[in-house]
Nucleic acid binder design. Sequence first.
RNA 1: GGAGACGUGGCUGAGUGGUCGAAAGCGCUCCCCUGCUAAGGGAGUAUACUGGCAACGGUAUCGAGGGUUCGAAUCCCUUCGUCUCCGCCA
Length: 428
Amino acid sequence: MFDLKMIRDNPDAFDAGLARRGLGPMASVIIALDAENRALMTEAQAAQARRNEASKLIGRAKATGNEDEASALMAEVGVLKAKLATFELDIATQTEKLNDLLSSLPNTPYEDVPDGVDESDNVEVRTWGTPRPMAWAAREHFELGEALQMMDFERAAKMSGARFVLLTGQLARLERAIGQFMIDLHVDEHNYAEIMVPSLVRSEALYGTGQLPKFSEDQFRTTGDHWLIPTAEVPLTNIHSGEILEEENLPLRGTALTQCFRSEAGSSGRDTRGMIRQHQFNKVELVSITTPEQSDAELERKTGCAEEVLKRLGLPYRVVKLCVGDMGFGARRTYDIEVWLPGQERYREISSCSTCGDFQARRMKTRCRSKGEKQTRFVHTLNGSGLAVGRTLVAVMENYQREDGAITVPEALRPYMGNIDVIGGSQN
RNA sequence: GGAGACGUGGCUGAGUGGUCGAAAGCGCUCCCCUGCUAAGGGAGUAUACUGGCAACGGUAUCGAGGGUUCGAAUCCCUUCGUCUCCGCCA
């Protein structure tokens, strides 16, 4: 959502931002709608002012028994009332038109975000680690998992259809261990508050973070009035919707481990094998609410927190800055972290860290104010995966696979795995 | 799921159709007084939009949305939420 004043004051800059997203200019249309709307409001408010005044006079006239004056005033107000009804209708129509338009526009990228249309135009920022040498042909995670008889896509499909998985035994435990490990790291060392959030939310929450109205097809919805969250970003970011926060308490950092649900409409045929793209997966999410001044540094910090998970697990990765065309709807700048998958011999996304500026804050009306000030401002919101649990499991399996198909448990996870150091192999 | 009660400003809490954006108290801010401490006096203290260079105005908001009325915090409807009792349930 955009600031109308900003569009009014810098129409060219606004259109330039849209242009980078591949959209045509909108500023003049928006400004015209807004001007029309404000003119209507000014007129309507004048009429309302007179109505309020007259109504008070009626009260006074009645109190003093001046019935003639009262009925004259009532006649005047009757006329105003009819006028006001049409004003209200016009204003409502105009406002809706304007809101529909504004809420469908993606956020404008920051200047340092590279141009480009898809992921091939992303810019590598840094890499960490080197892939382990393997003397055999590296297997993909589903080959390993199925051979271990701990990963079952067919039986999952029996009850739930495609894009679901059944993990059993040590792999189920590994999934759980990875989630615990990540949450503990972010809570104990990165100063995030641990939060348990609802997995079902109302449409207003999805509107607040930008999934609605445009991306309803990507979500699962209940027959009632709820939607399954596609990411904990939704509940975590919406916690403070409608509130005015004290700036001295910012930034607020919250983390949650939740299941995420995505319809994956439009990705049919992509990543059909294995756990990379599922309708349901676990993810640890990192959300920050900051002042406008803090958000740039917070994005770097957050990305670092996510990277730390991979470092502790000894998983090689690289960080890329997304180009304009690959960024999400609400983002102004995004870093993706891509982990090395030996089975695919390529880096795959395992985290995405974004700053949304005040884009979401405007939608959900989260403001801040420094102590003693009267002026409020919209906060900045940031989100990032820290990390996607399922994909981390994939990465652990593929990077730590042994020639015999067993999987070495990374040191950091052993306390969460009953201190075993290998999954499969002779000891299982 | 059944029955009922309630939702007012940072908090407590008045207010059942008229000058109420809203009493009072608490809290908070500023000022005055007071040689510490304590107490006292005065002023101020919501948000958004909008008009104006500004000074200063206007409009809306008493959970939310709609309705009745010349006029609604007050009446009616819908909805969301909270609480109590019963039932059910992890």
